[in-house]
Deep mutational scan, measured.
Amino acid sequence: SIVTKIISIVQERQNMDDGAPVKTRDIADAAGLSIYQVRLYLEQLHDVGVLEKVNAGKGVPGLWRLL
């Protein structure tokens, strides 16, 4: 499923980069989806406690990390 793919992308990127959070844009590119589509999935995963959003604010790139 797309959700499983997104989780594995975040996991893979974090492992490659010493646990650093992953940008929404990088996840979207790797999943082959638009940034808006991916954001909806990321928000859902956040709501159920799978991911945390590391930063927030208007015009700030979203950074995500697995919990």
Rank of each mutant, 00 (worst) to 15 (best):
Y36P: 11
D18K: 12
L67K: 14
N55T: 09
Q11L: 11
K23M: 09
D29R: 13
Q37R: 11
A28T: 01
V3Q: 08
E12G: 06
V22I: 07
L40H: 09
R13L: 15
P21F: 08
Q14D: 03
Q11N: 08
I27V: 06
D17K: 13
I6V: 03
V48I: 15
W64M: 00
D18F: 12
L42H: 00
P61A: 14
A56H: 11
S1A: 13
N15F: 11
T24W: 02
W64T: 00
L33C: 04
V54L: 05
Y41Q: 02
T24K: 02
I6G: 00
V3W: 15
K58D: 14
D26L: 04
I9T: 03
V54Y: 05
E52Q: 08
E43D: 08
L51E: 03
E52N: 03
I2P: 03
A20Q: 11
I35P: 05
I9Y: 13
V50M: 07
V50H: 03
L45G: 14
R13N: 03
L66C: 06
M16V: 08
L51F: 04
Q44N: 07
D26P: 02
Q44L: 14
S8G: 10
V10D: 00
I6E: 06
V50Q: 04
I27T: 01
D18Y: 13
E52G: 07
A30P: 01
G57H: 07
L40V: 12
V22H: 01
T24C: 04
R65A: 07
V50E: 01
D18N: 15
A31M: 14
M16Q: 12
H46A: 15
K58E: 13
G62Y: 15
L45R: 00
K58V: 10
L67C: 14
R39F: 07
I7K: 04
D17P: 06
I2G: 02
V60S: 14
G19R: 06
D29Q: 13
T24L: 03
V22E: 01
N15L: 13
T4S: 13
P61I: 10
L33E: 02
W64R: 01
V48K: 13
D17R: 14
A30N: 04
A31H: 01
G62M: 14
G62Q: 14
I35V: 11
Y41R: 02
D17Q: 15
D29V: 12
G62C: 15
R65T: 06
Y41P: 00
M16N: 10
R65G: 04
V50I: 14
M16F: 08
K5V: 07
D17C: 15
E52T: 06
R25C: 07
D18P: 11
T24Q: 03
P61M: 13
P61W: 13
Y41C: 05
V10E: 00
L66I: 12
N55Y: 14
Q44H: 15
I9M: 03
V3E: 05
L66H: 04
K58P: 13
R13V: 05
L45P: 00
V50G: 00
I6D: 00
Q11C: 12
L40C: 12
G59H: 06
V22F: 09
D26Y: 11
M16D: 07
M16I: 09
Q11E: 08
W64I: 01
I2W: 13
E12R: 11
V10A: 02
E12Y: 13
A28C: 03
E43Q: 11
L40D: 05
N55P: 10
G32I: 02
D47Q: 15
D17W: 14
G32Y: 03
I27P: 00
G57D: 08
G62E: 15
D17I: 09
G19Y: 15
P61N: 15
Q37L: 14
L63R: 11
L51Y: 01
E43M: 09
D47L: 13
W64P: 10
V38S: 03
P21M: 05
Q37T: 12
A20Y: 10
M16K: 13
E43T: 06
N55L: 07
G49T: 02
K5E: 05
R25K: 14
Q14N: 06
K23T: 11
L45E: 00
K23L: 06
L66K: 02
R65Q: 06
R65H: 04
L66P: 02
V48L: 14
V60E: 15
K23V: 03
A31P: 01
A28K: 01
T4H: 13
G57C: 07
L63K: 08
I7E: 01
R25L: 07
I9C: 05
A28R: 02
K58H: 10
L42Q: 00
V54I: 09
E43L: 07
E12A: 11
Q44V: 11
I27Q: 15
A30M: 08
V22R: 01
Y41T: 04
L66Q: 02
G32D: 14
V60I: 10
V54K: 02
Q14W: 04
I2K: 03
D47A: 15
I9L: 05
V60L: 13
G57A: 07
H46S: 13
T24H: 01
Q44M: 15
D18Q: 12
L51D: 00
T4L: 13
W64K: 01
V48M: 15
G62H: 15
G32L: 04
M16T: 08
V3Y: 15
Y41L: 11
I2H: 05
V10F: 15
E12T: 11
A56M: 10
K53V: 04
P21I: 04
V38N: 00
D47G: 09
G62V: 15
G49Y: 03
D26T: 09
L33Y: 04
D18G: 14
V54R: 01
L42G: 00
D18A: 11
I27H: 01
K23G: 09
N55E: 09
N15C: 15
V54H: 03
E12L: 10
P21T: 05
L33S: 02
I7N: 00
V48F: 13
L51R: 00
I2C: 09
E52C: 08
I2E: 03
V3M: 14
L51P: 03
I35L: 11
V38W: 01
Y36C: 10
V60Q: 15
G59L: 05
G49D: 02
N15M: 13
Y41M: 08
D47N: 13
A56P: 11
Y36D: 11
V54E: 02
L40M: 12
P61S: 13
I9N: 00
Q37P: 01
Q11T: 10
L67H: 11
I2D: 04
V50F: 05
S1M: 10
I27M: 01
Q11Y: 13
K58Y: 07
V38H: 00
G32P: 01
R13K: 12
V22Q: 05
P21V: 06
V50N: 01
L40G: 08
I9G: 01
S1I: 10
P61E: 15
D26N: 03
L66M: 09
E12K: 10
K23F: 05
L63S: 11
A31L: 13
V38D: 00
R25Q: 12
A30L: 07
A20F: 06
I6R: 00
Q37N: 06
R39G: 08
E12F: 12
G57R: 07
T24N: 01
G59C: 08
A28S: 04
K58I: 10
L63W: 07
L40N: 07
Q14L: 04
